[in-house]
């Protein structure tokens, strides 16, 4: 468990680093996925296998795919470096090759050790830290660290799981009614015996979000601004 924790913690830290340093959204998304995978390992190390599996299914399976879809829909080339001026950035500027420039192509030399193109691109797209954001997030980290340090001594140790959680991990329900800690059965019992109302409310929330997302993303909604087709607007311009 110790080893699993250290490994996954490192993986998720590495993924986070990729996420916050990459300019290219697809690389950043990859970083996010790695971080999520690492977190799943952390969950497993903390005796929460069901959460770990959920993490992979929901985040890696569903959310990441959704992000990818939207990345394909929209223009992934960001304007941070190309267009210094803030404010509205017209699509013409994005699609105009003269202005978009792009990274200068390095001359290739034969017989030389060549760093793979993906790696150079990744290295190229690392962005410099922004001082203000850095200061803020570091001071937040300092606050958190101080808070963690102030936790009482009992928090130095997890202690062993009590014997009452010694049930079989993947059995639907063990014969003597003893459930394993973090097992699917235990978590479901918690949901439906402990917090059924919250569960129902959250399902309602997801339903509402579904409807909202459909409404927002629909193309032609007469009378609702922002739902027009891009092409049509361009015609008007």
């Amino acid at each position: 468990m110790e080893v699993l924790f250290i490994l996954s913690a490192l993986i998720s830290l590495a993924g986070t680093l990729i996420l916050i340093t990459q300019k290219n959204p697809v690389y950043a998304l990859l970083g996010l996925l790695i971080a999520f995978g690492g977190s799943a390992g952390v969950f497993k190390a903390l005796d929460a296998p069901f959460i770990a599996v959920s993490q992979i299914i929901i985040y890696a399976g569903a959310l990441a795919v959704m992000f990818l879809f939207v990345l394909m829909f929209t223009d992934t080339r960001t304007q941070d470096d190309r267009l210094k001026l803030p404010g509205a950035v017209g699509s013409r500027a994005v699609f105009n090759p003269k202005e978009s420039g792009g990274p200068a192509k390095a001359k290739k030399k034969k017989n030389e050790f060549q760093v793979p193109a993906a790696v150079t691109a990744a290295l190229d797209s690392i962005q410099l830290p922004k001082p203000m954001a850095m200061v803020l997030s570091l001071s937040l980290l300092v606050c958190f660290t101080a808070a963690i340090a102030k936790l009482p001594a009992e928090f130095n140790d997890f202690g062993p799981l009590p014997a009452s959680y010694s049930g079989a991990m993947f059995a639907p329900s063990s014969e003597d009614g003893v459930l394993a800690f973090g097992s699917t059965a235990a978590v479901s019992k918690t949901i439906f015996e402990g917090f059924p109302l919250a569960f129902e409310v959250v399902s309602l929330l997801i339903f509402a979000a579904l409807l909202g997302a459909v409404l927002l993303a629909r193309r032609h909604l007469a009378g609702i601004p922002g739902t027009q087709d891009v092409g049509k607007e361009r015609d008007h311009a």
Partner: peptide, 25 residues
Amino acid sequence: GLVRHYLYAFATGAVILIALFLLIA
């Protein structure tokens, strides 16, 4: 009107509040 400016303000406020809370605690 820039989202990130609001975000900065929001985060600054949150950090200050957390710090204050820690100090008072």
